[in-house]
Amino acid sequence: MNDLSFLKPASRQIDFDNFDDRLLLYVLQYEPSFFTCISCGGCTATCSAGNLTNFNVRKIGLWLRRGETEKLSEEIQKCMFCGKCTLVCPRDINIRNVILLIKKRIAMLKNENTPA
């Protein structure tokens, strides 16, 4: 029925019961300190890329926790790996490594999904 095609049922709700943990588990395996993030935003304040673009390191962490793989693969490209975020983190998280791990894992997932 073509006349119903304008209807797009969807939800903005975070559904914790169907949560894509492929990125998060990988990051936690190699950088367990990530779990202690308290979203203080110190990283975002000092971020070189964030001062030039709308890149937000704190949000990278939040999206990682909620399995937003799609959003992350786009956003992560903006990081310049200067490491200033890691210098200011009060929880002593190696944020630079977190971002590197996300990038690695996304590349792995892409390879897995590409038929040989």
Binding site: K8, A10, S11
Partner: peptide, 14 residues
């Protein structure tokens, strides 16, 4: 408003 009806049906689906 027709454009908003996805919002309506999303609630019903929930």
């Amino acid at each position: 408003i027709k454009n908003n009806r996805s919002y309506s049906i999303s609630n019903s689906r929930k």
